[in-house]
Amino acid sequence: MTQIIFITADEQEHVLEADSGSLMELAVANNIAGIDGDCGGVCSCATCHVHIAPEDKARVGEASEIEADMLELAENVTENSRLCCQIAISDKLEGIRVTVAEG
């Protein structure tokens, strides 16, 4: 099981666990406020926007070109932004901190 820490707009920390699926699916399964996942995770809606903690970015990796383009639909985009349906859970993500973007 990989542990992922989601931080919501109310500054609550939610420590979640999974060993497969995407970060978006994990968030929806645990009612993380602000992650809607309207398109079901096919990088078409930008309702799964998060900020990855800077120290965890290297482990999470870069957005694909499509994702980077789609991110432009989101608000409050920073260099730490990702669409979390595009991040697959694996042990290399153990303990990463992910903040739900506002907007």
Partner: peptide, 12 residues
């Protein structure tokens, strides 16, 4: 099937 919301979300 991919749920729109978790079962527990409704009660919550």
């Amino acid at each position: 099937l991919q749920p729109l919301k978790a079962q527990s979300a409704y009660a919550q």
